[in-house]
Design a protein around this nucleic acid. Structure first.
Lengths: 211, 211
DNA sequence: CCCGGCATCAGCCAATCGGCTGATGCCGGG
DNA sequence: CCCGGCATCAGCCGATTGGCTGATGCCGGG
């Protein structure tokens, strides 16, 4: 009855793009308009091709997926963004949805689920894979553990490197007292009592890990 | 001149398997004999189909890739294993090579590099993507930081949870002195001086993170 | 059979940490 | 205009940590 659902694929891995393309071309009802390897290219492509659905990976070198979604939302693009990620780290989900993603799927979803998701997304309905959905509800249950302030993140990063309070103070050109204050706040916000656990939480929540 | 290179694809993501299959079927010289979604299935499939090359992801739920490689090597399989991973975390590389993998590629390698790699692998030559190769050399430069002993890992895990030495002692039914000894060894092996940095290293090297 | 790695334990001591109380200045939203 | 969050600083004190030296028992490989 209706025309094909048009889509563009955004992922930094050629293999994945190829795989998606193959899957969508193997069944009727979809047309792959194009591919992009990063967020910047994705926004541009979306501008040009105006697809119904954009399948996008979040983690990409150069041209963050999140920024791309934000940008598209800001531009009032009519394209629905379906985030397709490898592993979900509940750190990414919420921001992505807030930024305007219509759905969030894990890459290991079965083919049919993927097709369904794209159709749902094209129709404007929110689609979340079960795993993601459950994470979301638990995330909402907890009032959001609050993210760290810029300075607090800096301190935590140094702590993770084994830097003592005194040396952190030196490195950041502030007093040791201030370092301790920052750290206390970090502890409170992360719900821990010592630097070791804070570092663990930092990794767990994606605050640390990419330097 | 020679027959096609036969291969099987092992990855838990249908999308990735599909993508690889598509790529290898789009050019002459390759025949995809089959696919598997985990290490156990991979070993079985390799037994049945005796492929020239096995393209394998390491991180898979149920049936670890590393174990699969070990098993294949033990069985004296003639198949060359090419590890194809998403992100390389130098934690995986060495064990994989030691276990008998012929090569180690990142999934974001360009198509041609992939094809070349498979041909090289089929010919029995070791292939490493440049990024991996450089990691390897630096890893060899450092005499291998040595992995942690079982008990040491337990202690580190508790440290990451913010447990004090005294409480760790209680939880493991050992004395506090022993805990400190273990921790000292952990510090030495990880090349750090305090628990916070140890936790960071733990995450960085994949010792911590999956509980 | 010896050595090295693992796991266990003791005691000492200085350094570091974490909690607590209390303060100041800036900025942005209500 | 006030309040809350951020960033800065101080001092005190008990608790915890980490380094050091030294020891014992078990096990497995050379």
């Amino acid at each position: 009855m209706s025309a094909d659902i048009s889509l563009i694929l955004v992922d930094d891995h050629p293999v994945v793009r190829n795989g998606l393309r193959g899957m969508f071309e193997s069944v009727p009802g979809f047309t792959v308009l194009g591919e992009a390897a990063d967020g910047v290219a994705a926004v541009q492509l979306a501008d040009e091709l105006d697809p119904d659905v954009i399948l996008m990976d979040l983690r990409m070198p150069g041209g963050n997926g999140l920024d791309a979604i934000t940008e598209l939302t800001k531009r009032g693009s009519r394209s629905r963004v379906l985030v397709l990620t490898t592993w979900d780290t509940d750190t990414d989900t919420l921001p992505a949805i807030e930024a305007g993603a219509t759905g969030y799927l894990l890459k290991d979803a079965p083919r049919d689920e993927l097709f369904t998701a794209v159709r749902e997304a094209a129709a404007g309905r929110t689609v979340l894979s079960p795993a993601v959905a459950s994470r979301l509800v638990t995330a909402v249950r907890e009032p959001a553990p609050s993210p760290l302030a810029a300075r607090e993140r800096e301190v935590l990063a140094l702590v993770a490197k084994g830097t003592s309070n005194r040396d952190i103070a030196r490195e950041l050109f502030i007093s040791e007292a201030t370092v301790k204050t920052h750290l206390s706040h970090v502890f409170t916000k992360l719900g821990v009592n010592d630097r070791a656990a804070a570092v663990a939480k930092g990794y767990e929540q994606g605050i640390l890990g990419r330097d």
